[in-house]
C-alpha cells in the first residue's frame, strides 16, 4: 500500500499542478465583492436587531400599561433595596467591582467602562452602563463586556431571539422564561469557531447583555482552525447576567420615557487585541 500512496500523491500532483481557473483575477474580485456584501448584511442585521428590540420595548410598554390592574404594579428594583448609585463615577466603580467579582477565577486586564446614562437619555435611547475587560483563564483569552440598560417604565421582557443574520453562522438561540416573566436569551452568535457568545437577561425594569468575543492565540493552531472553544460557556455568561449586582446598578439609573429605545451595544475588541 505505501507504494500506492506514493503513486497517488505523485499522480494527484501531475493531474492538478497545471490546472488553472479561467480568470483568477475575476475570482478574487467577485470573492471580495461577495465578502463585502456579507459584511454589509451582518451590519444591517445588527441594526435590524436593535430596531426590533426598540420596537418590542415600545410595544411591551403599551401592553403593560393597559393590562396591569389598577396601577398596583410595584417597582421591584426600587423597593427595599440598598441605596443605588447615583453618579456616573460611582456607577463606573460598581460596574468595575461587579465584573471583577463575577469573573473568577481568571485574570482581568484593561478594564474599561462606558456610561451613557446621562447623554443617551437626551437622544431618546435608554440609559446604559457598560464595562469590558480582557479575561484570561486556563482555557484562553476573551474580551467580556457587560451592558446594563434601564428600561422604560412598564416595559416587558422581550424574550425573543434576534433574527438570523444572512451570511453569518448564527448558532442555536435559546429562550428561557421564568414564571414571573424574566427572560434569558442565550446564543452562540458565531459558531465556527465559537468566538462570539452572548447571553441577555431581562426583567421588566432592566436588561443585562453579556458578550464574549474570543481572542484565540495567534499561531496556536497548526492547520488554521482552533481546536478549543472560548474560555467562558454560555451558561457562565448567563450566570453573570443574572447576578443581583447589576440590579442595584440599574436601579441607580434614571427611568427613560416610554419612547426610549434599547440599542444593540458591543464593545470593540480593538484596544485589547
Amino acid at each position: 500500500m505505501p507504494e500506492f500512496e506514493d503513486a497517488l500523491s505523485t499522480a494527484l500532483r501531475q493531474a492538478a499542478e497545471a490546472v488553472l481557473p479561467d480568470s483568477p483575477l475575476r475570482l478574487v474580485s467577485e470573492a471580495h465583492a461577495q465578502g463585502r456584501r456579507i459584511r454589509r448584511r451582518r451590519k444591517a442585521a445588527i441594526v435590524t436587531t436593535a430596531a426590533a428590540v426598540a420596537a418590542a420595548v415600545a410595544v411591551g410598554g403599551t401592553v403593560v400599561a393597559t393590562s396591569l390592574s389598577g396601577g398596583h404594579r410595584t417597582d421591584a428594583i426600587a423597593a427595599g433595596r440598598p441605596t443605588p448609585p447615583s453618579g456616573q463615577r460611582e456607577r463606573d466603580a460598581r460596574m468595575h467591582d461587579a465584573l471583577t467579582t463575577l469573573l473568577t477565577p481568571g485574570t482581568l486586564t484593561g478594564i474599561r467602562t462606558e456610561d451613557s446614562a446621562a447623554s443617551e437619555a437626551k437622544e431618546g435611547q435608554a440609559p446604559a452602563a457598560g464595562v469590558a475587560a480582557k479575561f484570561t483563564d486556563s482555557r484562553g483569552t476573551a474580551v467580556v463586556s457587560v451592558f446594563v440598560t434601564r428600561k422604560p417604565a412598564g416595559a416587558q421582557p422581550m424574550g425573543v431571539c434576534p433574527p438570523a443574520r444572512v451570511g453569518a453562522s448564527d448558532g442555536p438561540c435559546h429562550v428561557f422564561t421564568y414564571k414571573d416573566g424574566r427572560t434569558i436569551v442565550s446564543q452562540v452568535v458565531v459558531e465556527a469557531p465559537d468566538d462570539w457568545l452572548a447571553s441577555t437577561y431581562e426583567t421588566g425594569d432592566y436588561q443585562v447583555a453579556v458578550n464574549q468575543l474570543w481572542l484565540p492565540k495567534p499561531g496556536a493552531h497548526s492547520s488554521g482552525l482552533p481546536t478549543t472553544v472560548a474560555p467562558l460557556t454560555v451558561a457562565q455568561l448567563t450566570s453573570i447576567a443574572e447576578s443581583d449586582l447589576w440590579r442595584t446598578i440599574a436601579a441607580g439609573m434614571p427611568v427613560p420615557p416610554r419612547s426610549a429605545t434599547l440599542p444593540f451595544r458591543l464593545i470593540e475588541t480593538t484596544p485589547w487585541s
Binding site: 471580495h32 465578502g35 456579507i38 484565540p216 495567534p218 499561531g219 497548526s222 492547520s223 488554521g224
Partner: peptide
C-alpha cells in the same frame, strides 16, 4: 474558491493577525 475567499474576507479585518496560518485556514 469564491465562497472560501469571501469567507476569508469576512474574518480578515477582525482576525487576520490571529488566524495563525491564513493559507492553511
Amino acid at each position: 474558491v469564491q465562497e472560501t475567499l469571501s469567507r476569508m474576507y469576512v474574518v480578515w479585518g477582525r482576525r487576520s493577525d490571529k488566524l495563525g496560518n491564513p493559507a492553511a485556514y
